[in-house]
Amino acid sequence: MSNALEIEGLTKIYGDGFEALKGIDLHVAEGDFFALLGPNGAGKSTTLGIVCSLVNKTAGKVRVFGCDIDTHLSDAKLNLGVVPQEFNFNQFEKVFDIVTTQAGYYGIPLKQASVSAEKYLKKLGLWGKRDTPARMLSGGMKRRLMIARALVHEPKLLILDEPTAGVDIELRRSMWTFLEEMNRQGTTIILTTHYLEEAEALCRNIAIIDHGKILKHTSKKALLQQLGLETFVLDTESPLDAAPVLGDFHTRLDGEGALEVEVEKGQGLNQVFVQLDQMGIKVISMRTKANRLEELFIRMVEQNALDSRKNVEGAA
C-alpha cells in the first residue's frame, strides 16, 4: 500500500532560534487513521503546519501521495483537507459562502461546489444554518463548519488538529462516528488530540512526538502491548471509604468512588475477586479503563524529559 504522507528529516528552526522539529521521519499509509500525539509545544502543529503550507520548513522532505511539496506543491495541496486548531474563517461570512468559497479556491465551479457543500453541511448537521453568519454559530458548530470546509473538495488526506477541543461529549462522539465513516470510505485521516481516549478509540497507528523528536511510531496495538499493565474499573454494591489492599495488586478509588485495580501481564483476575469476596465487597460490574494510552503517553514523555535532563547534566 502506498503512503498518504511521507516525512523525511523534517527540521524547523524558528526565527528566534527555537528548534521545533529536529529532523523527524514519519509515514502514514493510505487509508490509515493516524494519531500524532505529544504535549503542548512538542512539534505537532508545526509538523502539520509544514504539511499544509502554513509553516515554512527549514530542511527535510514532505510528500503527500507521492507529490513533493517542494516541486509539486499544487498537486500535494489538491489531496489535502485541513481542519486547524483555531477557528480561521471569516466570522462575518455565511456558512454556505465559507464552504463554497473554499471549493472555489480549489478550482471547483460554484454549481458543483454547492452540491458538495450541501452534502457535507447536511452530514454535519449544519444545513439549517447555511445562511447564518459564522459568528452566530456555537463552538461545536464552528468546529463542524471547519470539517465541512475541509472536505468540500473531497480530499484523500484529511488532517485535523485538535478537532474536538472544547466540544461536549455527545458532539464529540458524533464527530468520531462521522470521521470513522469518512475513513471507512477511504479517506486517510491524521489527527492530533489532547484526548488520548480519542486516539485510542479511533486510530490504528500512532506517533508520539516530544521536544521535536518522534519518540514512538508504531501501531496502537503494539504500543498498548508495551504497557504490560491494564487498569480495571470495578463498581461495588456498597460505596467504599478507601481502596482495599489486595496483595500484589495496586488499587485506588477513582473520582466517583469506583475501585480501580491495576493488573500486570501474567497476573490473573481471579485473585482479585477471591480477595474482594473474602472482604465482603460485592462487585456489580467491571470494565477496562479506556485511557490506557494516556498512561503510556505520560510514561514516555516523562522518560524523555528525564533523558533530556540527564543529557544536559552529562554535557555540563
Binding site: C52, S74, N88, F89, N90, Q91, Q102, R149
Partner: peptide
C-alpha cells in the same frame, strides 16, 4: 489585513491557488 488578523488567510494558503 483582516484576513491575516482573523487567520482566514489560511483558507487560501492551504489551497492550491498560485
Amino acid at each position: 489585513f483582516s484576513m491575516k488578523f482573523q487567520r482566514s488567510i489560511e483558507e487560501l494558503l492551504v489551497s492550491p491557488v498560485p
